[in-house]
Each structure stands twice: as C-alpha cells, then as structure tokens.
Computed example of a mutant assay.
Amino acid sequence: MLLGRGVVPTATPVVGVDDLGLTRGHGCFDATRVRFAAGVADIDVLELHIARLHRSAAALGIPCPEPAAWHDLTQEACRVYAGDGEAMLKLVLTGGGETLPAGPVAYVTLTEIGEETFRQREGITVATLSRGVASDAYADAPWLLGGVKTIAYATKLAAKEEAHRRGADDALFVSTDGFALEAPTSAIVVRHGRELATTPTGATGVLASITIDRIAEAAPQEGYTLTHRLFTPADVRAADGAWFVSSVRGVAPIRRLDDVDLPTDTTGDDVVRRLAGF
C-alpha cells in the first residue's frame, strides 16, 4: 500500500533506481503485529509505532508524512488484506532520490506471520556475538544513529546468519566491555525474583522498545518492577528466566545461551507474555 497511489501489486516497482533507501540504506521503518478475526483487524499500539517512525525519520533528516496519513494507509491495507490470523504490519519510509528529483517514498506492507515465529514463542537458543563497541559508545556520537530504526539491516542480518551457523535461533549482542545489549530485532529481559531487568537505551545505542515500555507500564499491576541497568551474559545465565521481546515475534523465552541451558521459568513466561500483551 503506497502513499499517494494506494494498493500496488507485489511485483510492481515502487522506488527509483537511485532512491537513497535502496542505494545507501537511508530510510527507516517500524513494525507491529496485526490480528485478523472475521475480517476485523486488531493492530497492536499503532500510534506508538507511528510516533517511533517519526523519531527515526527526524534523526535521519527525512520528511515524514503526518500520523493521520500513516493511519489511513494502514487501515486501507488492512481492509484489502486477504489473510487471517496474525500478520506483520511494516511501515517504511525511504530517503528519496539521490540525484533524480524524487521525494521520499512511504508505504506499508502486510505479511502473514509464519510457523517459525510461533515456534520461537515457545523457546529459542541464542549465541552471544560481539557488537564491537563499548556499552557507552553512542553517548557523544548521535551521528552513529544509536536507537534509530533504520532500514540498513545488513549487520543485523549477518549476526542472525552467524547465530544460525553456530546452531542457534538468534543472537545476543555483547559490548566490548562485557555487557549484554540487545538482539538484532529484539530487546532482552531477565527476571530476578520480582525484578525484571532490561538494558538501558541512550549511550548503549539500544533501540527504545515499545514492548519493553508496555511491560514497564503493566508490571506493577502484577507486583513486578522493570529496571533499566547493565548486566552481563553471566547474569543472564544466573537469572530466574530470560526472554527476547519484540512487537511481532512477541515473547521468546531463551532456553539456551551459547553452551549453557537456562532454567525453564514457566511462571515468568506467563507473566512476561501477559505484561507484553501476548
């Protein structure tokens, strides 16, 4: 669904050959889950994802359509979607033409969520990988775009491929000073008793997670607190439970980290899923 054009067949080109999103990864996106039942779409916290998309666009200096335009585009996409069950809604904004006079391109896609995602909600194995920077590397370097959800995902895809080569489902980035950061497409949460902990944003370059915000808001209702603090992979292994959380996959319990089996925290699984809205 392309802003200004409406429904576009999947095989129809929508960006020019010199679009900065295509040639240099200069663009941003956001994504969330949509549940379809009897033709009715239930979109998870769409306004929060549109707001984060606007923050990403501002960091990149790309003019972003107004929230109402994204909302209308999304509603139209849901109206014509032919699937059922769960789908991934992706909102994409490119940087526009590099040499040709073409402005940014805004579009949304809906893709059915596959069985592999549902499997990973039951548990995943994870490999730790160095991110190659210290935990405070982004403190005084906003041009590194820490915490910005850009479409330049080559490094994150490469990390996932390396995790697969090591026999794991996903990767956990670790800073050069030894702290757990985030997964390529997820935040991490660990439980110690009634405390849930996640990595701080800001200087770490970790993306501010909408799912984490939902957990933090709901946690006191279940007698839990959510803390933003640094911790190590050893702390993850010693926790009562650990999870990767994200807007589409939802809550994925970490069952193995490198060569160490983690405890199955059934109580924690249920709590974190409820807090995250899954």
Results as ranks from 00 to 15, higher is better:
L181D: 06
G4L: 01
V236Q: 05
E161W: 12
A77P: 15
T111P: 14
G277P: 11
V271R: 12
D177Q: 07
L226Y: 12
T128E: 04
V248A: 03
P104I: 05
T155P: 14
L53P: 11
K160Q: 11
I151T: 15
L275K: 06
D240R: 13
E76M: 06
A159Y: 03
T227A: 08
P65D: 07
D30R: 01
R237M: 13
R35I: 06
A69M: 13
D140K: 14
G96C: 14
T150P: 04
Q221K: 14
A216L: 03
S56L: 05
S247G: 10
I113S: 06
A216H: 00
A187F: 00
P101Q: 12
T150E: 02
A252Q: 14
V190R: 08
G202Y: 01
R274C: 04
L2F: 06
L3G: 01
R52S: 10
A68V: 00
F36G: 04
H192R: 07
I62M: 11
Y224M: 09
V190P: 07
M88F: 06
L3T: 00
M88P: 13
L100A: 11
I212R: 07
R255H: 11
A106F: 13
G167Y: 06
A139E: 03
G6P: 03
D19W: 06
V133M: 04
T23P: 05
A187R: 07
V8M: 00
T267L: 12
T99F: 15
D177H: 08
A216E: 01
A87C: 07
I210A: 12
V108C: 15
G16I: 00
T232L: 09
P65L: 04
G85I: 00
A51S: 15
D136Y: 00
A77D: 04
G39H: 07
A134W: 03
G96N: 11
A219V: 03
V260T: 15
W243Y: 13
L157C: 05
T225F: 06
A102L: 14
R214M: 10
A141G: 11
V80D: 09
F278Y: 15
A59T: 10
A137R: 02
G250S: 09
R119I: 04
G147N: 08
A218T: 04
V34F: 08
P184T: 02
P220N: 11
V133A: 02
T201Y: 00
H54Q: 14
D42T: 10
A218W: 12
